[in-house]
Design a protein around this nucleic acid. Structure first.
Lengths: 212, 212
DNA sequence: ATCATATGGATATAAAAATATCTACATCTT
DNA sequence: AAGATGTAGATATTTTTATATCCATATGAT
């Protein structure tokens, strides 16, 4: 064992389950509860207790033998692991239906995300506010990003426009893109892209339906 | 080998990749192209060629040795596998921001889904049309489902309302629920539920960002 | 004080998914 | 006509992820 301890990588599946645990833990914490066992969490989340145990161990959640995991400490551990303990300034490109819906979703502040600006090219949208967020013209991307020190991009533009906007974002130094356009983006290796493809979920549902 | 050939189950990951292939294939088919190799598809989708090969083999896509997969036949194979070759009548419960955005998304008709009704409880929404879809009061769920022979439910209600609505849907005989509420639904085993949790994707992005 | 019990911790096993390797063959080039 | 090449097909291997098993321990009941 050398100086550089090999950091055990945490699986994508584990990461995707963490917000689910977090919601239940917030709830219980609100009721003043202090401890929760993996079996109790399992009942609420329908995730097997062994999986929960392993997930929470992986991120180093504090626990009490025989009694379960400490709720407050586990919340902190998850929030810290995800960086949700302080807000990242984000912006949205493409203020269409989906974009507007995301701007109206108040829950992001609990998830480390604060959307403080929006961009679009449609004249009837530019200059207005949507759910309290000002809509700039896309041409102003660079200046506003620098001025407001924005870090995370939420992409809700039509597919054909996505790669072009992405190139601009990369040129502006953006390192994280949450992409709702049904297009695989090409980016340098130091830029994180999270692809949301609504069709994948629908495909899963339809495949389930066909099997039954 | 007996009478009952064991149907090899197709992995969830494969199913989630199929729509991605489909988009590229539609595009190429539109240009009159007839054959596509897994390496070419790999370039476009950023999915490794071996994975593509295995996925397409799994659903029995037709191919030509040395030349690749037949585009038209592969489109048919994917559409057939997902049941996207004929439209399922669907409805949406909860015509808020997200619900309205989904109603405005025209792409579902290419994905076997036709949303023909919406439901809500807010008086200012009931009776109106959103993107051409009529909004009924939630109390009318049962009668409208039966009258219009609706099959698939899209749930975009607030979390606390989700389980109650689900119980009603199950009582109405609905067998497929696409759930956008951040709640795990309890349903009988013959009902398919697909959970969409926007927080999971955000968690993935934030975890990536922290690593870099 | 003693014992039963439910839990996290650690390890081992199994299952699923991704990746690599090799073969046969149809097409193209020469 | 002969050979090189890039492909699907089949199989094997590795990696990842999920699940099971056993153990030590803190808690609560007796």
């Amino acid at each position: 064992m050398g100086l550089f301890s090999k950091k055990k990588s945490i699986s994508v599946q584990t990461i995707r389950r963490l917000p689910q645990y977090l919601r239940v833990l917030y709830d219980w914490h609100g009721y003043g509860r202090e401890l929760a066992s993996s079996t109790e969490l399992a009942q609420e989340t329908q995730v097997p207790p062994i999986v929960i145990k392993k997930d929470l161990q992986a991120i180093g959640a504090p626990s009490k033998m025989r009694a379960g995991f400490k709720i407050k400490g586990t919340i902190s551990a998850i929030e810290n692991f995800l960086g949700w303990d302080n807000l990242n300034k984000a912006f949205l490109v493409g203020a269409g239906h989906l974009g507007a819906a995301l701007l109206g979703f108040s829950g992001f502040k609990n998830h480390g995300l604060e959307i403080v600006a929006a961009f679009d090219t449609h004249p009837e949208r530019v200059g207005n506010e949507i759910h309290g967020v000002h809509v700039y013209h896309t041409a102003q991307l660079k200046s506003v990003i620098e001025e407001k020190k924005l870090k995370i991009a939420v992409l809700t533009v039509p597919g054909p426009a996505a790669q072009g906007i992405t190139d601009t974002l990369v040129a502006c130094g953006i390192k994280a893109i949450w992409n709702f356009a049904p297009v695989k983006l090409a980016v340098p290796p130091d830029v994180a892209v999270q692809q949301e493809d609504i069709a994948s979920g629908l495909a899963e549902l339809c495949a389930q339906l066909k099997r039954k």
